[in-house]
């Protein structure tokens, strides 16, 4: 990694520290969402022990992973990317000797380190206070989960980056971001585990990159994937990560013509 990208990352981390209060308050949206889900599922599980193969304990663990994922690469990083395009400062970026995509990744990484730190603290507190939530079975499973989770953030970056590029064709970032969030939330398993889906939708979801964002790390965390399946899950995630990176380059090359040829 070149020094300039490291410096971008560290600057963006400092920036998120400067706006730490906003960040943490922003995170409350994820907290509320997951709390609502928690109580909804609690009410549902009040009269049954298992649903679609998930026990109440499984579901609590699943919600934890889903929450963790939702706090990473939050709205802030997403809107920072799209506003670069919307306010025209992307033209200034073109003057600099840096790669646009790599620069956005560096910035996102810097912010995510901060977000990850805060979430890790929150999750630790939940695990300690609320001892009933299960954790990965072995240290190896922990490591696999952390790896898988790290890759999941990269996949999320790939999705968010590509969707942000659509702002070259719009004048406001909200529509793009909402549509992106709606699709990601459903197909990643953030709303509900993929196992609850009707078979056709489940099959579709498994063939798309989004499942790598929540479903994959959750399946490792919950111990649904063990042994070789862990490697398989990780491999699929890395595959999507790479594909999205190059897809991002492709869309960028197409999108940037809006600036270089049509003048914005």
């Amino acid at each position: 990694m070149k020094a300039k990208y490291l410096s971008l990352a560290s600057r963006s981390m400092q920036n998120s520290l400067a706006y730490r209060v906003s960040f943490i308050v922003n995170m409350s949206a994820s907290v509320f969402y997951i709390l609502a889900m928690f109580f909804l599922w609690r009410a549902i599980y009040a009269h049954r022990t298992s649903l679609a193969g998930y026990s109440w304990n499984d579901m609590k663990a699943y919600l934890l992973v889903s929450f963790l994922s939702s706090t990473m690469l939050s709205w802030y990083s997403e809107s920072r990317m799209s506003s670069r395009i919307l306010d025209g400062s992307v033209a200034m970026e073109l003057l600099k000797p840096i790669d646009f995509q790599a620069a956005r990744l560096a910035e996102t990484a810097g912010t995510t380190v901060f977000e990850g730190g805060v979430s890790a603290v929150l999750v630790t507190i939940v695990l300690i206070v609320y001892a009933g939530v299960m954790t990965p079975h072995s240290p190896a499973a922990w490591i696999a989960f952390i790896l898988s989770f790290a890759v999941s953030v990269l996949i999320k970056f790939g999705v968010v980056y590509i969707s942000s590029l659509f702002c070259f064709w719009t004048s406001s970032g909200f529509g793009v971001a909402w549509a992106r969030a709606a699709i990601t939330n459903l197909l990643s398993g953030a709303l509900i585990p993929l196992a609850f889906f009707p078979p056709w939708l489940r099959a579709t979801a498994y063939f798309l990159p989004f499942q790598g964002i929540v479903n994959a790390p959750a399946s490792i965390y919950l111990g649904q994937a063990t042994g070789a399946a862990v490697w398989g899950t990780l491999l699929v995630q890395v595959f999507w990560c790479v594909v999205l990176w190059f897809l991002g380059r492709f869309v960028w090359r197409f999108a940037v013509r809006k600036v270089t040829i049509f003048g914005g």
Binding site: R48, L51, A52, T170, S172, G175, W178, A179, A182, F196
Partner: peptide, 29 residues
């Protein structure tokens, strides 16, 4: 025009997917 359609479309999408979520849950309980 494209903004208009996109924002209306994405709002509808968000809601319909929320409805899908409820549907999926209630298909089991």
């Amino acid at each position: 025009q494209s903004d208009f359609l996109l924002s209306v479309g994405s709002a509808m999408l968000t809601q319909v997917l929320g409805l899908v979520f409820l549907g999926v849950v209630f298909s089991r309980i």
